[in-house]
């Protein structure tokens, strides 16, 4: 059985429909990616799974249980944790306090402060500084570490390479491989298609709020991808 199962998900911002009948799934321990152009509905889909958007209960199932529309804090306690787009580090909290907030409603599991500092040593060096003093790449590490502190079953990562230098992005993807190695099911949204294709077992391409293509990276040729991506 899939850990995450999204079936016929539609989502709205007011009267504007952002997702049309989206279905996707992620098996336990699997790394799955969503790619697509700006405005394709990738982030909306993550936000719906994470409980930020109101959606019907049956549209999102976690280990078989209908959890759609539950509040975000409740989903964290069930193991669904999102690392939001733009890092969203808490400016009044130090690096270490940001990590500790991640464990507020967390479950027991492999991740702890020492393990996160092992994964991102730069955070340990700067643990006492305000979180927003870090560089963009370090803030992204902090945002991922903060999410890990909750010991998620399902980690949702939104636009993690946005605005970061390629060398920094490569470092982040190395960390994601370590995280996947711990058996954490991961759903990654990113525009860096080459990194995503190398990491994910399966890829969904979104276009105009619907899934336009899905499959393992090896089967997604350049032509099929650009057709799904741009609709040409």
């Amino acid at each position: 059985m899939s850990l995450l199962e999204v079936r016929g998900l539609s989502a709205f911002y007011g009267t504007f429909q952002a997702l049309f009948d989206v279905s996707l799934e992620a098996a336990e321990g699997e790394t799955v990616a969503i790619i697509g152009a700006n405005g394709a509905g990738k982030s909306t889909c993550l936000r719906a799974i994470a409980g930020v958007l109101a959606v019907p209960a049956a549209a999102v199932r976690l280990a078989g249980e209908a959890v759609g529309g539950r509040p975000a804090h409740d989903l964290v306690a069930r193991g669904v944790v999102m690392v939001p787009e733009g890092r969203r580090i808490f400016p009044s909290l130090s690096v270490e306090e940001n990590l500790e907030v991640g464990a507020y409603r967390g479950r027991p599991g492999p991740w702890s402060l020492p393990r996160v500092y092992d994964l991102f040593p730069v955070l340990a060096e700067r643990r006492r500084q305000p979180g927003t003093n870090l560089s963009g790449g370090e803030q992204q590490m902090l945002a991922i570490g903060r999410g890990l502190m909750a010991n998620p079953r399902l980690l949702l990562l939104d636009e993690i390479s946005l605005g970061l230098a390629p060398v920094v992005v490569r470092g982040l993807y190395r960390a994601l491989r370590t995280i996947a190695g711990e058996g954490t099911t991961t759903l990654v949204v990113d525009q860096d298609v080459s990194q995503v294709m190398a990491l994910a077992r399966r890829v969904y391409c979104f276009r105009k709020g619907s899934v336009s293509l899905e499959g393992p990276p090896a089967e997604l040729t350049r032509d099929r991808l650009s057709a799904a991506y741009f609709g040409v």
């Binding site: 994470a50 409980g51 930020v52 509040p71 975000a72 804090h73 409740d74 964290v76 306690a77 944790v81 999102m82 939001p84 969203r88 808490f90 400016p91 009044s92 909290l93 306090e97 500790e100 907030v101 991640g102 507020y104 409603r105 967390g106 903060r146 909750a150």
Partner: peptide
Amino acid sequence: RALRATSDDQETAELMGID
């Protein structure tokens, strides 16, 4: 810490499990 986090950014605090 939760109070400060919520004061900074309510939505992200919710995403960290804070009710």
